[in-house]
Design a protein around this nucleic acid. Structure first.
Lengths: 151, 151
DNA sequence: CAAAAACCCATGCTATCCCATAAATATCCA
DNA sequence: TGGATATTTATGGGATAGCATGGGTTTTTG
């Protein structure tokens, strides 16, 4: 199982290519499909990234729904129909489709954020501001983690 | 097992031919039958697309019904009786039968939507609306995948 | 024999491949 | 340990192959 950690910022060239961080690529080395799967985040201006095998796992879970059921179709349509698979080139890059770049507001620098078994791609500037806001909120409101809470 | 991802929009020429997306063809490369199986959706103005081998899985699932039951006969009738197998030509295209094109309202642009182990073919314009519905359904009904969420 | 289906070839576009360079990191050896 | 050398990354750009598309020609088949 892949484990994505840390944040890496890489440049997007004029062809829309961007290097996937080598640490991430190492995590994906055993995959049948040499590349990544992306789709739009439902909650943030960012892209969600997965390993091909993770999509197989999701597909397997969908098998638990009745074939042709409305629930299965709705889920599959939003999860699979909205995704894109991007293969690595010889140098470990992928080309980001323009629609996805626009969705996430990616201009020049793409930030790869490791989140365990998935990762996110942000525009580097947007992410920096987002993090600043989060920090300020925590400070100003004195947010802390309740003891004993898993969250 | 084939895994169909993403949405590809291809043009239908005046002979009724349309290119099956190469990513989909790759998923079908191991099949005995070099082509796809199509039939009308029971619930939507769309065509259901499968790999030849997956029809066996559908057959297996039909076994769960009582033999000779009305429900089994009805399903078998709409799935197997209504299905067509379309072979690829040398360029990876299939010819969409006019009845199926009319059923799905396909005019000029056919949208191939990957849904995991199956895919659907929509008229590109109609699909845009359907996608809105699917998103809303997932959101309002709080649909998630069993044992952990894909998000 | 006629209509339709399958087959074959041509083309523009785009994605992919391939090579080159620079920067960063790692490795080696005195 | 420090400095020199090798290796891996990230990046850039030109060449190439594959894909989607179109149209013609042959081969079925009713």
């Amino acid at each position: 199982m892949a484990l994505f950690l840390s944040t890496h910022i890489n440049k997007v060239d004029k062809k829309g290519r961007v290097s996937v961080p080598s640490q991430f690529r190492d995590q994906l080395s055993g995959e049948q499909f040499s590349g990544i799967v992306l789709f739009r985040s439902n909650t943030q201006p960012a892209l969600e990234g997965f390993a091909w095998s993770y999509m197989q796992e999701i597909s397997r879970r969908l098998e638990n729904f009745d074939l042709f059921s409305e629930a299965q179709d709705d889920l599959a349509m939003t999860v699979f129909g909205d995704s894109v698979q991007l293969a690595f080139d010889g140098e470990g890059r992928v080309v980001l489709p323009v629609e996805l770049m626009e969705f996430a507001g990616v201009v020049e620098k793409a930030a790869f954020v490791g989140l365990g078994n998935k990762f996110q791609i942000w525009d580097a500037d947007i992410l920096a501001r987002r993090r600043e806001d989060a920090r300020r909120n925590v400070r100003e409101r004195g947010l802390t983690l309740p003891k004993g809470d898993a969250q």
